[in-house]
């Protein structure tokens, strides 16, 4: 049971701003989706939370304690990073052993069980694994570590559809058995939409919003039909974007579809999480 509070975090890489005054709270025992386009600052944020890199200014507070340079606070966090943070000459099972030194609640039996489900040979060296299996090894390590905060940075990179599906099942199962705070950074929004309870969307180093996924779904809807009719309907309404094809037009309108009075001849549909994400993060 752990909470992460991020206050006014700013990070620059040379002249590039990776994060700009980011403040967001990850409440305990909730599965978060951290969504953003390439270069939005997702990995930087996760790296700062887990103490792998330092912010220029701002604070990361874990369970009320400033986590910067604080080992006991950082021990509550596990980061499954895109990079391999272990010595590549280690065997998979030795990576688990190493992790169990840092995470006293590491569940070795569970890790071995998952490996057999993925048909991952734990005697193989990390350097000898394919991209997909290296991801699986890191994902198993993260699921088994027992830390109250687990950050997953692109956890399904290089995984085939079957393995991705298996991973989502394991996330849900593990979370049901041993609730923890999960932050999953991913581009596969459609696939993870059912799993995440809240989404934090970042755009160009700033938090766009932090909302329940159900709430995000009701943020907008699409209206399509004859261009003139659609334009007439959209008058005075706030728009997220749109598409046109010949005389046909689709506009993405902000607001709830339930309260919208859609005129005859136009068709309206709710937007899914991915669609809303795309409209809101288009530059």
């Amino acid at each position: 049971m752990s909470t992460i509070e991020i206050r006014d975090l700013t990070k620059n890489y040379g002249k590039t701003t990776a994060l700009s005054n980011v403040s967001v709270t990850f409440k305990e025992n909730c599965i978060y989706g951290l969504l953003g386009r390439n270069g939005a600052g997702k990995s930087t944020l996760l790296n700062i939370i887990s103490g792998r890199t330092f912010a220029d200014s701002g604070e990361v507070i874990i369970d009320g304690v400033n986590a910067t340079g604080n080992d006991s606070a950082l021990c509550k966090v596990h980061l499954m990073s895109e990079q391999l943070l272990y010595n590549p000459s280690l065997k998979v099972k030795d990576m688990f052993k190493t992790a169990s030194f840092y995470y006293p609640d590491f569940d070795m039996e569970y890790a071995m069980k998952l490996c057999s489900e993925y048909e991952l040979d734990t005697n193989r060296k990390l350097s000898k694994l394919s991209t997909g299996y290296r991801t699986i090894a890191k994902a198993v390590n993260a699921l088994a570590c027992g830390a109250p905060i687990v950050l997953f940075d692109e956890p399904v990179l290089g995984l085939d559809a079957n393995h991705r599906d298996l991973f989502y099942k394991h996330v849900v199962n593990r979370y049901s058995e041993r609730p923890a705070t999960y932050v999953i950074s991913t581009h596969l929004i459609e696939e993870t939409a059912g799993i995440i309870e809240r989404a934090v969307i970042i755009k160009k180093g700033e938090v766009l919003f932090d909302k329940d996924t159900d709430e995000i779904r009701s943020m907008g809807y699409s209206v399509s039909g004859k261009a003139a009719d659609v334009d007439e309907f959209a008058k005075g309404k706030e728009l997220m974007g749109g598409d046109a094809l010949g005389g046909l037009k689709t506009l993405y309108v902000k607001g709830s579809l339930e309260n919208a009075d859609i005129p005859e001849g136009l068709s309206a549909e709710p937007m899914n999480l991915q669609n809303i994400f795309i409209q809101l993060t288009n530059s």
């Binding site: 989502y168 099942k169 849900v172 199962n173 979370y175 049901s176 059912g194 799993i195 995440i196 309870e197």
Partner: peptide
Amino acid sequence: TTEISAMYRINPAT
């Protein structure tokens, strides 16, 4: 709810 959420890969809270 645990069984349903695992089977359909949905959040247990949902």
